[in-house]
Simulated scan of single mutants.
Amino acid sequence: MTTAPAGDALIALYPILATLTARTRQRLEARAQFLELPAGTTVFDERQACRGFPFVISGSIRVVKAAPNGRELPLYRVTPGETCIISSACLLGQAPYNARGVTEADTTLLVVPNEDFQALLGEQAFRDFVFQLFSERIADLMQLIEEVAFRKLDQRLAALLLGKGQRLHTTHQQLADELGSVREIVSRLLKGLAEQGLVALSREQIEILDPAGLRRLAGG
């Protein structure tokens, strides 16, 4: 909203903002911060104070929960048109972040300061929008908890491979990050899948040879 193109893009992605009163829109235009962040930038981290509410215009933010041993569990991604419920929760509860957000690609954000976010919540349409997305994100997180708690890692790996096309250009470490595991375990599981004829492995590439077999494995 600091420039017209950014404002037009923001309204296109978040139509709810077009319903705000003229006074509220003017306040956002004057106070919101426009940020362009390169891939790999830490947008927020655990125990940091939340300084504002991000609207994603381009790129994406990967939100993870980190363990003391360095392992990470991916929670969700924030892409254009979506919101970060952890940021919302921190602002609503006036609490620090309990997760980490990192840009996956070059990312453009508009960050609304805390006090202005509180003012936005005073408008019924925006408040309904935030809580609707809260509901959707919580449903996604409940599904993640179910997968982590009740599905074996090989099942989750098979499901992950099926969602990325016939030929994947990725590393074992990247897959481990997606699964919240470690590279050595994922490498061992991939070797087992290759021995079963389900996939073919090469440097930073995995080819799906037997999608039906992977689907059977993913389904348990």
Rank of each mutant, 00 (worst) to 15 (best):
A30S: 09
C90E: 09
L28C: 01
L92W: 02
L120A: 08
E82S: 11
T42H: 08
D140L: 03
Q48T: 05
A119E: 11
R71W: 07
F129R: 05
G81A: 02
F34G: 04
V56E: 03
P54Q: 01
F126V: 00
A67C: 09
L110C: 10
V102W: 02
V63P: 11
V63S: 06
D116F: 00
Q118L: 14
L35Y: 13
S88H: 14
I85A: 08
T103M: 03
R47K: 14
Q143D: 12
A95E: 14
S58K: 06
M142D: 14
A95L: 07
G81D: 10
P74D: 06
L162F: 00
V130M: 14
R31Y: 01
L157D: 05
A49V: 04
R47D: 15
T21R: 15
I57S: 08
A105L: 13
R151Q: 14
D154L: 00
P74Q: 07
T42S: 13
E82D: 13
T83V: 15
C90K: 05
V56D: 06
D128H: 10
D116R: 00
V130N: 04
Q26T: 01
K152L: 13
V112I: 15
F150L: 12
D45L: 04
F150V: 03
R51Y: 12
V78S: 07
L157Y: 05
C50E: 11
Q132L: 14
R23L: 01
I145T: 10
Q118R: 12
T21W: 02
A139P: 01
C50D: 10
Q94S: 13
L120R: 07
E82G: 09
D106F: 02
T83C: 11
I138L: 12
A67I: 03
T41D: 05
L73N: 07
I57K: 01
R71G: 06
D45Y: 04
A39I: 08
L35T: 02
G93E: 14
T108R: 09
S58Q: 10
T24I: 04
F53A: 07
N98M: 07
A22P: 02
E147F: 02
P54H: 09
G163A: 11
L161T: 02
A30I: 00
E115K: 04
V56L: 09
R137K: 15
A149I: 04
A125T: 14
A32M: 06
T79S: 09
L75F: 03
E104P: 01
L160M: 03
L121A: 06
R23W: 00
E115W: 05
P96D: 08
R127Y: 12
N69H: 09
C84E: 10
Q118C: 08
I145G: 09
T103E: 01
Q48E: 15
F126P: 08
R156E: 06
G101A: 03
F34S: 15
L153I: 07
G122A: 06
